[in-house]
Amino acid sequence: MIRVALLLSFCIGTLALLLAVAGTSGFDVVRSFFEGISGYSLERSEFVGYGPISEILRRMAPLVITGLAVFIALQVGLFNIGAEGQLKVGGLAAVFVALFVGVDGVVGVALAVLAAIVAGMIWAIPAGAIKVWRGGHEVITTIMLNNVAAHFASYLIAGPLKKPGSSEAASDFVSHSMRLSAIGDPGRTVTLQPALIVGVLLCIVAAWWLVRTPSGFELRASGANPIASLFAGISVRRFAFWGLAASGGIAGLAGGMHLLGQEGRFAEGFSPGFGFDSLGVALLAGRSPLGIIPAALLFAAIDQGSLRTQVATGLPKEISAVIQGLIILIVAVMRYRRSFAR
């Protein structure tokens, strides 16, 4: 407990120091942060609109799905730092199907999403294979695969996937019949991304599967205690391999949904680091996939609040990365002591 208290004071000290350096008043920062995430104006004492809440839910959508991807890998005892790359190839696969396969509507969406899942899996499989059969650490292999994915994406959008006649390195927009646009009326209600609904449903299914089914139990057991699991007749290697592959597939799905739902095309900066943010989300989630939902909400709210605070007070929005890093540290000290040591 004293450790947590020590750490908390360190964190508060860091943030206070940053505020002092920037020379903005703490009161202004807290007020604009609150206004930025709630849509409630303190000055006028009235609710201004659902815009900020919709914006948080929009940011949350890819984080929930990618967070679940990282979470599944953590369950088999692996760190999937490669979610970023898997998400990118997922987006690339989806945009490829949407632009070049020539099917539209529901069938087109289904095909594009399927392609995204498969692409994400393919991008995770080398890391799983090297881990299981050759013992190479998954953190390094997935980081390497991230870099390859980034270069691959920049090659494709500057070359084969580039919109003809455009000077910008970006793909063309996918047709309107394949866009998964937000549900709700932006003026009057909260808008919801289809990806968020999919993500929440997946988390619920995963929570049920991990706790209530034999295969889910075996998967958790193989990560929690590999040696005991081996003696119990569980194929730890198989779960490690397929756990990471499934994780890649889910990250790919996040990329595909993000493309069809929000971006509409693949351009430079397709992912502003969802794969890395989702590491924090998954660590924060705790034991159940249901924890991913509030964790992603928190991270999205911090991002949104920092952005609004930057606009209102000039305090750099990079403070969100500091807050998120410190949250990971505090949660790790409180909950994750040695639990992932292999």
Partner: peptide, 17 residues
Amino acid sequence: IDHIVSGIAANAVAFGV
């Protein structure tokens, strides 16, 4: 705490600061 988790947190804080 786990070495990777600590590294992720340290990188995030350094990036932010």
